[in-house]
Every structure is written in C-alpha cells, then in structure tokens.
Amino acid sequence: MSDVAGAGSLIDVHSHYVPRGWPTLPGPEPRLWLDVRSEREAMMMIGSTEFRRVDERAWDAEARLRDMDADGVDLQVVSPTPVFFSYDLAPADAAGVSRILNDLALEVTAGSDRLLPFCQVPLQDADAACREVERSLSNGHLGVEIGNHVGDRDLDDEGIVTFLQHCASLGVPVFVHPWDMPSTPRSNRWMAQWLAGMPAETHLSVLALILGGVFDRVSTDLRICFAHGGGSFPFWLGRMDNAWRGRPDVIGTSEHPPSHYRDRFCVDSVVFEPAALRLLVDQMGVTQVMVGSDYPYPLGERPVGSVVHAADFLSDAERDQILGANAARWLGLGAPAGDGPESGR
C-alpha cells in the first residue's frame, strides 16, 4: 500500500457501499432492508418506501476497481451509506447493526488493498461506540464514518466528544457525513434536503466543534474530515468571525474566532466547480482539502478529481497535495516530505 500511496497518487476519501448480503433484521417498523432485484441491481427500502436504487458498484469490488482504474484512482476510502447509522435505535440494537455492517464491509473490500474500509459505530452510546471502533480496527478497518448529529445532540455533546477524544488517542481518522435532514413541505421539494439541507447540516456541526469549545478541549491528534467541502461553512467564515467579535455574549465558548480553527479539520473537494474549489482552498488552506467523489451515487463527481485537475489556479505541487498527499497524511499512510500543515496557508 505504501507504493500505491506514494507521490503523485490519487486518493478518494469519500465513497460509500451497500452490502448486497444485508440481512432483513428484526426490529420496529419501518426498518431498512434491501430488495435485491437482479445480480446487478437492488433497491434500498425503508419499510414499504423506496429509498435509493443501487447497483453492483455499491457492493462489487471488481466494479469499483474498474471505475477507479478508468479515473486513475489509486486508493478509495469505502464508508457506510449513512442511512445505516441507526442512531434512532436502542444502543444495543444499533451496536448489533454496526457489527453486522462492519463485518460485511470487509467482504466488500476483500481482495484489494486499494479499498480502505471505514466502519460505523452506535454513536448514541459513547462506550459502545468506543468498543465497536476498537473491534473494527482490530479486524482491518482503517477509520470511522459518523453522522453529523444524533437526534438533537450535535458534535459538542459530551458523549460524542468522549468518542472523538478516544479516536484521537487511537489515531483513527474520522469522516463526518451529513444525514437525517429535517423533512418539511419546503425541504421535500426539488431534493432540497440534499441541495440546501446537507450543506447547512455540515456547517452547523463544524460550528458545534468550534463554538462548543470542542477543539479547545480535544487533543490536536484528532484527525477529522467533513464531507461536501465543509458545506456552507467556508463561504460564511467572515460572517462567523464578525459575530464572534460582535456578540461574544451569545456566540459560544471558543477561545478564538472560528477562522483560528481551520487547521483542526479537513474537508473533501466535492464542490463541482473550480471557482468553488478556489474559495475552499483560500479559506481552508491547501493542506486541508482532499479529493472526494461521493461514489457511486448520482450526486457524486466523475471522473474522480476532475474539479481539481481543472483548477488552473493550483500549482503542480498544490494539485498533488489535494489529489493524494493530504489524504495519505490524514489516513496515516505517510506522505512525501514538505506536505505538513505548516505549508498550507
């Protein structure tokens, strides 16, 4: 793997899987199950409602590797599809779902060291989450994907902070994905939950880490990345700093303005336009941005890394950092000399 993750590599930190062998589990309705309709196609179901159509790319390593070869991707992080998180279940039931899903993930990624499995955990219970991430790491998982909230509990919730600190102590990369967007008559049109709700959810949870004082308390060893370019956070960073200075009585408990914490987390590059990527790099620093694709879903980027390749404002060295070196460092795979955080902004 060290050869694959060397200089000039392309690493995709944001893709998802669905195990074709997902069992129909007992539990309260409506529950998640997989309606397998052919060797190459299935429908994810929630009760009797169709949730998402998936094909063999979601579970077949060979299909993934063919697409990776076509796009020039060397390594791909393979994370759960967020609908599996099961944060609404009792902790013991959610722990059971996580164990089954995480074990099936290893079947999806078996046979190729280019596919890097990330686990999920029952985040509603800190102790159970810590146990499951340890079990998964010992079985071959490289990191963990979590949702950006558990009901009304955001990332500054004490239990979630305990889990994040545990990940920092273990050296585990954490990928945060928005999920469970509010369903309202306004947000249920035009895929607005995904087009407006997801960026807002991510923005809110980055704020929770900053204004909730989490980054001031949790070890700097925490390696955490937010999906979809950090949502709307980078665009509104100036507004947040202004509010921190103008309304310190209500803005939160962070020791520094929000812009101070940009080096504490990474974001992926799923922003689709070079102009948006330029804003992202200007605000976050080139060392904090990594390629993501959201593969294999329709709102993802293909070919993987195309917006980075199209960004003519990047130098060759900066492009190489975003394409692979930053991800290699975040994943703990090693990175070429000179790509440390101090060279970013």
Rank of each mutant, 00 (worst) to 15 (best):
A95P: 03
G197V: 00
C266Y: 13
M198G: 07
L89T: 04
E301C: 05
L75H: 06
C167W: 07
G27V: 06
R52F: 14
V308R: 01
S254W: 03
V176P: 02
R247P: 09
V121C: 07
V161M: 09
H260C: 01
Q124P: 09
H260D: 09
E273M: 15
E273A: 11
S306A: 15
D156R: 04
M44V: 15
A63S: 15
D268H: 02
F235D: 09
W59S: 05
L222A: 03
V281C: 10
R239L: 07
M1N: 11
R239V: 03
L204A: 14
I210N: 02
T253N: 09
V271I: 13
S232T: 14
D282Y: 02
L222M: 01
Y87I: 01
P248K: 04
S15W: 01
P336E: 12
P80Q: 13
L123Y: 01
L277Y: 00
V144F: 05
P341V: 13
D67W: 12
L211R: 15
R153Y: 11
S112K: 14
A61S: 11
T220C: 08
E56S: 12
V83G: 01
H203K: 10
D316N: 12
R40A: 15
P296K: 08
E158P: 13
R247N: 15
H14F: 09
M1W: 12
Y17S: 03
Q165D: 14
R53D: 12
G238K: 06
S136N: 02
P296I: 01
V307Q: 00
H256P: 06
L280G: 06
P274L: 14
V304A: 09
I322H: 03
M44E: 03
L101Y: 10
D69C: 11
A5L: 11
R99C: 00
R40K: 13
F163H: 06
L207G: 12
A94D: 00
G21Q: 13
N102S: 07
D12W: 03
V144H: 02
M191P: 02
S169A: 15
V291N: 04
P178R: 02
A317T: 15
H14N: 07
R31H: 08
R329I: 12
E107S: 12
A328S: 15
E39K: 05
D60P: 01
V4A: 15
A325C: 10
L104H: 08
G151M: 08
L106Y: 07
R329A: 12
D180W: 00
P26L: 13
A95T: 02
P82E: 00
S79H: 08
D35I: 14
V281L: 03
A42V: 11
S48C: 06
G285P: 07
V13I: 14
P199D: 08
L34R: 00
D221V: 05
E318M: 12
D127Q: 14
A90N: 07
G47F: 10
T202Y: 05
